[in-house]
């Protein structure tokens, strides 16, 4: 069965790029264009993994992430955050706790650093989806 990956990123070029990579590697993809309607989109699409950009206008990825993690209907879906801000280690150890500022919110299942390394991205996505079973 084809696994479905949801990409939430406000930049169309990045969105197109990520969707193309994942489609080429046998995943099906979807997105939510309206950031304020993420919950609704996820509930209807039921993705196996969400790739979420941190910096977006209007509503930041962090606030979306918090919502996904605190909603009981959604918190089982793995989430990978994507950002150009810093390497993975710095992000998980320093930036993420500072941004979220709430210890009850668990760290993301994965982190993707821009610029994107195609093999690494595919490996991470495959791993996260398989872990979920």
């Amino acid at each position: 069965m084809t696994k479905k990956i949801m990409i939430i990123d406000d930049e169309p070029d990045i969105r197109t790029y990520l969707m193309a990579i994942l489609e080429d590697n046998g995943f099906s993809v979807c997105t939510v264009l309206d950031n304020t309607e993420v919950k609704k989109g996820v509930l209807s699409e039921k993705p196996d993994l969400i790739i979420l950009d941190i910096m977006m206008p209007q509503r930041s990825g962090i606030s979306i992430y918090k919502e996904l993690r605190t909603c009981s209907a959604l918190n089982a879906i793995p989430v990978a955050l994507i950002s150009g801000m810093m390497p993975e280690k710095d992000f998980i150890e320093k930036e993420f706790p500072a941004l979220v500022d709430d210890k009850s919110v668990s760290p993301p299942d994965g982190y993707i650093e821009k610029p994107v390394q195609v093999e690494k991205l595919v490996a991470l996505v495959t791993q996260l989806v398989e872990e979920r079973g």
Binding site: I14, A20, K114, P115
Partner: peptide, 20 residues
């Protein structure tokens, strides 16, 4: 560096689309 990373991602995206 951060700004450049975003730009590179966009360029790489373009390249990927072209190549594939």
């Amino acid at each position: 560096a951060h700004g450049v990373k975003n730009l590179i991602t966009g360029l790489e995206g373009g390249m990927y689309m072209m190549n594939s």
